[in-house]
Design a protein around this nucleic acid. Structure first.
Length: 247
DNA sequence: TAACACCTGTTC
DNA sequence: GAACAGGTGTTA
């Protein structure tokens, strides 16, 4: 799950719960995360997000948490065995991850794209790559993953397969605006829960009820009624309306 | 840019 | 059994 909207949801909730709190202890239960316990030292000075990465700034240094496809953080009792547990005065926070693709590390190697909620649209929309692949490139734009790329391109009425270099300036602005709009609404609904995603308190998000095309193959387009199609683009499922999203 | 690897679970 | 799933890093 965790794209920008989900990570931003967690970031805000973590800030509420642990800002200023001291890490009392760390338990690592998954050998693949061995060694990461030494990163968590001191009080929490800031809870930041860089695209889809969560960055905890502690007195002992910065820790980057990447949630992968199915990772999440849960305050209080975990409903499945955690990979790692952080203890704070107010309670425990568990990293839970069915697929074990999440990772923890020191600061470094963060992608250099623009945050769509903070920055201006990128100026260089390079090359012949399909626009959806570009939107998901974390060195171009931060935080957009497969769900929100499909949704934003539908809102902007742009074909995901069109080479980015062929987009007009108006279309670029429309796409950027659609990305922001979709992400802001998803944040306000605590993200999209398809199967794994839950917020810090274990609650599902609500944006799955607003999805227009993602996962909707064969269902009618909300704009024109044509059946939504699914095709593969750079190895990822891509849903779109073949009638509204043509160049 | 594509394919695969990393993982595990669910669905066809 | 095979295909597929929110991400990302490496390899051909």
């Amino acid at each position: 799950v965790p794209e920008l909207a989900e990570v931003e949801t967690l970031r805000g909730q973590l800030e509420e719960e642990i800002l200023g709190e001291e890490v009392l202890g760390v338990s690592v239960f998954d050998s693949k995360l061995r060694g990461s316990e030494v990163l968590f030292r001191g009080r929490v000075c800031a809870v930041k997000r860089h695209g889809k990465a969560l960055v905890l700034t502690l007195e002992g240094g910065d820790v980057v948490i990447r949630l992968g496809m199915s990772g999440r953080l849960k305050l209080g009792a975990p409903e499945r065995p955690p990979r790692l547990t952080l203890r704070f005065p107010g309670g425990e926070i568990h990293l839970i991850d069915r697929r074990r693709l999440s990772s923890i590390g020191p600061l470094g190697g963060l992608p250099k794209g623009v945050d769509p909620l903070l920055g201006d649209p990128p100026l260089v929309w390079d090359s012949s790559r399909p626009v959806k692949a570009l939107l998901m490139d974390q060195d171009f734009l931060l935080g957009v993953g497969n769900i929100y790329a499909s949704e934003a391109l539908f809102v902007a009425a742009v074909d995901p397969f069109v080479p980015a270099s062929r987009l007009s300036p108006e279309e670029r602005l429309r796409i950027f605006g659609a990305v922001r709009e979709v992400l802001l609404e998803a944040i306000s609904l605590r993200g999209t829960t398809i199967s794994d995603w839950r917020d810090l308190y274990g609650r599902p998000g609500l944006y799955q009820e607003r999805l227009r095309v993602y996962g909707k193959e064969g269902r009618p387009c909300p704009r024109c009624g044509s059946p939504i199609r699914r095709r593969v683009l750079s190895g990822r499922g891509t849903w779109f309306c073949p009638s509204c999203q043509v160049q």
